[in-house]
Design a protein around this nucleic acid. Structure first.
Length: 293
DNA sequence: GCGTCCAGGTCTACC
DNA sequence: GGTAGACCTGGACGC
């Protein structure tokens, strides 16, 4: 390692609850071992820098970030780490909605609620499509193939997530045969071409002034993005109005709050409606509480 | 070994 | 707007 950055942490930040908040830490170019104080991520190359591996370690009230090579633009890496871990996100409003809820009070005590995300919406978008209609094992296989076959190597040999340009150079057959993306293959080819050409800018969704319902419609224009995927992406963007119900979340709700019996989505929505625009975060924290026991 | 089911759903056609 | 059927892969399971 040739360079170490340091970031001061907000007081209400939990490294463990943020890194393990959902499965992203298990998908490359993230690396993390359960309960380890370290998270590794490989940042994609830019015009100024090659791909750089950042090994992020919590030490008391700071993050120490060891880099695989000395960057020309260290600020980009620091901003990226802050974005990944949502260091700038104000959690107080969410925590205020939990004040009179005995069941979810643990969230405030644990400083939970920050959801791990990628440095780019592009990466989160592609990964989310990889989670749809398949097992987690297949999601890992598809994302692993994308990184291995189209990522750029850092000095330590680890590879970054492919850029839109790198994916746009491939056709649907490549995604089908090499990535094993199945029916998603033409979706990836079309999406990458749109983003690489500038026709579509997923990063603009982060700062969109559209109401969430309208932004969700924009997201659903991307082939392969339906209700679940759009609401999951909105959570990663920082909008928690939607529940992003999938088969796993539904099954957890049935078991936790409905005696193991199936019920309509409307009943789940009613259960969390009191949390308003934070309901998507409330259900996620509620259903994943056992991960941290 | 083989067939079936289904998993962190979505798209299209049709009504 | 709601619904049925098709769509890919690969691991788990029963036989």
């Amino acid at each position: 390692m040739t360079r170490v950055l340091e970031i001061r942490l907000p007081r209400d930040f939990s490294f463990r609850h943020t890194v393990a908040s959902h499965g992203w830490y298990d998908l490359p170019p993230f690396e993390h071992k359960e309960r380890s104080p370290e998270l590794t991520y490989v940042f994609a190359p830019t015009k100024r820098d090659r791909a750089i591996t950042a090994t992020i370690r919590k030490e008391r009230g700071t993050l120490k970030i060891a880099l695989s090579s000395k960057p020309r633009d260290a600020e980009r890496i620091a901003r990226g780490v802050a974005h990944i871990l949502r260091l700038d996100e104000k959690m107080s409003e969410f925590y205020a909605t939990l004040e009179n809820d005995d069941r979810l009070a643990w969230i405030v005590g644990a400083n939970a609620g920050r959801l791990l995300r990628s440095p780019s919406v592009w990466e989160d978008l592609v990964k989310t499509i990889c989670t749809t209609n398949c097992s987690w094992a297949l999601t890992k296989k598809m994302v692993g193939n994308l990184v291995e076959k189209l990522g750029e190597p850092a000095a330590d040999g680890r590879k970054s997530f492919p850029t839109p340009q790198a994916m746009a150079e491939q056709d649907a057959d490549f995604f089908r045969e090499e990535i094993r993306a199945g029916y998603r293959s033409p979706y990836f080819a079309e999406l990458a071409a749109a983003v690489a050409s500038g026709e579509l800018d997923p990063e603009s969704w982060l700062h969109s002034e559209l109401p969430t319902a309208d932004l969700k419609k924009e997201l659903k224009k991307v082939k392969g993005v339906g209700d679940y995927a759009a609401e999951n992406l909105l959570k990663l963007i920082g909008r928690y109005d939607g529940l992003a119900l999938d088969s796993w979340l539904r099954a957890r709700f049935y078991k936790t709050h409905n005696d193991g019996r199936k019920c309509a989505d409307k009943k789940i929505a009613k259960f969390y409606s009191k949390f308003g625009e934070w309901q998507g975060l409330a259900i996620w924290c509620d259903m994943t509480e056992r991960w941290f026991k």
